[in-house]
């Protein structure tokens, strides 16, 4: 987190506006409804609105929330909206923000599953999906590459990665076991120079 120090400290709490519950729900509904491409697209948009436009939160608190959202398990935007709402307006704020984030995607997917999925057996649709599937492979591979690039600057992380990948492919290790082993190895075999950046 390079901008952890940000400008939040200087701005202090002085210029912040209070967030109304209805506004929070609306904001997350809107972001949940328009952002295609998952969490990493949603976060910058949320940032723009709640820091620059609405002035609900300082840069520093925003970055803190994001770091926590990424450190605990679960979908990152779910964690993030829950935490941001909670810190702005308590439990009610957290639940409403979460509701806003989840509802649009739930309804849209439900609509597709109910009304559109029946067309998937049509020959042309199947041909299109045969072309789309290899695209999905590329998207997942590039996500691994993007996340790996900063992490693998440390050789230790690269060694662990190769170890885990080999375990998954060759030994068929359970995905949960890989996460648990990662946590255990992180504690037992800590990086030499303190802690690497998250």
């Amino acid at each position: 987190m390079d901008n952890l120090q940000g400008n939040g400290g200087a701005a202090g709490n002085g210029g912040l506006n209070e967030a109304r519950l209805a506004d929070m729900l609306l904001l997350f509904l809107k972001i949940g409804a328009i952002t295609i491409g998952g969490g990493y697209v949603m976060i910058p948009l949320i940032r723009e609105v709640i820091i620059d436009k609405k002035r609900w939160i300082t840069e520093r608190d925003f970055v803190d929330n994001l770091a926590i959202a990424q450190s605990i398990p679960g979908p990152i935007v779910v964690n993030f909206s829950l935490l941001t709402g909670y810190r702005l307006r308590g439990l009610k704020g957290g639940l409403l923000s979460l509701l806003g984030t989840v509802t649009p995607s739930f309804l849209i997917i439900l609509g597709i599953a109910i009304f559109l999925w029946r067309f998937k057996d049509i020959h042309l649709v199947q041909a299109a999906f045969l072309g789309i599937r290899p695209v999905v492979v590329a998207l997942i591979a590039s996500a691994a590459y993007k996340l790996g690039k900063p992490v693998f600057r440390l050789k230790r992380a690269l060694v662990l990665f190769i170890l885990f990948l080999a375990g998954l492919i060759i030994l068929g290790v359970h995905p949960i076991a890989v996460v648990v082993a990662g946590a255990a190895l992180g504690v037992l075999w800590p990086p030499k120079s303190g802690v690497e950046k998250g």
């Binding site: 691994a144 992490v151 662990l160 990665f161 990662g182 946590a183 255990a184 992180g186 504690v187 690497e196």
Partner: peptide, 22 residues
């Protein structure tokens, strides 16, 4: 913090594995 330094490579291995399986 230490646990997270081990979880990060594990997470990337899971994504890499997903790419292979898919």
């Amino acid at each position: 913090q230490r646990a997270l330094t081990g979880i990060h490579p594990a997470v990337i291995a899971l994504i890499g594995f997903a790419a292979i399986v898919v």
